[in-house]
Each structure stands twice: as C-alpha cells, then as structure tokens.
C-alpha cells in the first residue's frame, strides 16, 4: 500500500495534473477569501469561503480521480499490480489515499489566508474555520472514493471524469431536488444522501459525529466496490 501511495502521489506531481488541481483550488479559495476580506469580518470565513467552495471542490475532484484506476487498465500496468504479492484492497487504498493527499494539500494550503487574517483580526472564529476545514476534508474523501470507483469502471480518463462530474452535479443539486420532489419518502432519501446537508453542521463549528460516520462509510463502501471491481477481472 505504501509503495503504491508513494508512486501515485509522485505521479500526480510529475505530471501537471497535481499542480493544476492544487492551483485551481487555491485560486478559488483566494477569490472567496478576498470577498471575505471585503466584508471585514472573519466570522464570514466559513459561510463565504468554505460553503461556496463545496460546489467548486466537488467539481474539481473528478479531475484528481479520473486517471486513478483507468490509466493502469489502459496501459496494462495493472498486470504488475495484480500479480504482485499485495491484496486488491491495498492497491485501491494506496490509490485513494494518494488522490486524497492531493486534495488535502490544497485544503491545508487553504488555511494560509485564514492564518494571515487571524494576525489582523481582533477575534477569530477558529472553531467554525476548522470545522469547515475538516468537513471539507471529509466530503472530499467521500467524493474521491466515488471518483476512484468510477475510474475503475472504464479505461478512458475522459469517461471517468465525465461520469464523476455527473455524480458530483447530482450531489450538488440533490438538495434542490429534495425540495422540488414531493413525497416524503423521496425527500427523506434525497436528504439522506445529500453531502451538503451532512456538511452543514461543520460550517457552524460543530464536529458532527453522524456526518463523519456517514462520510467514512461512503469511503469504505466505495473502496470496497472498487476492490471488488478490480478483482472481477479475475472472474470474467
């Protein structure tokens, strides 16, 4: 697992993709921080910056995960991985963690403006800032695990990216869908899968254990699915 993680992370940054993703994410964070500064109140950091970034992060994550599994399949390098004495779950976990690390690098760097602001702010609401920071990490991890799974379904990076975009857009719009669709059962289900609804508690500075469990379960389920998908090569 460590070998694959190291190799994947290196490959993100030996091609432009890692830099581009981190740069775009940070540029967007920069923009929203700038808007916050105009409001002259650090209490807006979580509502202005991290809330708005939910949508953008969901849109950018498919770029991180698109080549995760599909590239190996296309270049037949999966033969090296699958014939090495490592289990499929370790392979998937290595890949997932590498993609997550790219996202986490951007997230950690996104705290830099908050630090600078804290130097000048009279009172800094670190609770809500860190809450949203961790919340963002969690929904990011969940989205990345979905992206890795979609990437394992195809040999084409483009299809993997577009497929994951589709899921991202669905997850972004699911709240609005919930209000549009009548019928309490649908509404309950849609609200239940809404990432945004799970993310909201964090923006208030509360560390929501149910949400954490929800996101971690998503990661576990999709890592499991991806591993099974990888293994299915051996049955078909």
């Amino acid at each position: 697992m460590a070998a694959i993680f190291k190799k994947e992370l290196k490959s993100y940054f030996s091609s432009p993709i890692g830099y581009v993703v981190v740069a775009v994410l940070l540029a967007l964070y920069g923009f929203f921080y700038y808007v916050t500064v105009l409001y002259r109140s650090s209490s807006y950091i979580s509502s202005m910056v991290y809330s708005n970034m939910f949508m953008w992060s969901m849109m950018i994550i498919p770029i991180i995960t698109m080549k995760s599994m599909s590239d190996d399949k296309k270049n037949k390098t999966d033969q090296a991985l699958l014939t090495a004495p490592v289990g499929v779950t370790s392979i998937v976990m290595g890949k997932f963690l590498a993609a997550f690390a790219v996202y986490a690098i951007a997230m950690v760097a996104s705290l830099i403006p908050a630090l600078i602001i804290s130097l000048f702010a009279t009172s800094m609401s670190w609770g809500s800032v860190l809450g949203t920071f961790f919340g963002s990490l969690f929904y990011g991890a969940a989205m990345i695990s979905i992206g890795v799974f979609v990437s394992s379904l195809t040999e084409s990076q483009i299809i993997a990216a577009i497929g994951t975009f589709g899921i991202s857009i669905f997850l972004i719009l699911v709240d609005q869908l919930g209000t549009v669709v009548g019928g309490t059962i649908f509404q309950t289900i849609l609200n239940w899968i809404s990432f945004n609804a799970r993310y909201q508690p964090f923006t208030n500075g509360t560390f929501s254990i149910p949400s954490l469990v929800f996101f971690i379960s998503i990661v576990a389920v999709f890592v499991f699915f991806t591993a099974r998908k990888l293994e299915s090569k051996r049955w078909s």
């Binding site: 030996s14 037949k76 390098t77 490592v86």
Partner: peptide
C-alpha cells in the same frame, strides 16, 4: 507480460524501486 507493465512517466530507477517495494 506480453506488454511490459511499465509506467512511462517514471525513470528506470524510480520504476525498479517502486516494483522493489511493491
């Protein structure tokens, strides 16, 4: 395998070290 499972974006050194760990 028929098609050597090589990562084109790695050097020989990096690749062999990766396989060594793997």
């Amino acid at each position: 395998p028929e098609l050597p499972p090589l990562y084109m974006d790695m050097t020989v050194k990096e690749y062999l070290n990766f396989m060594y760990e793997l």
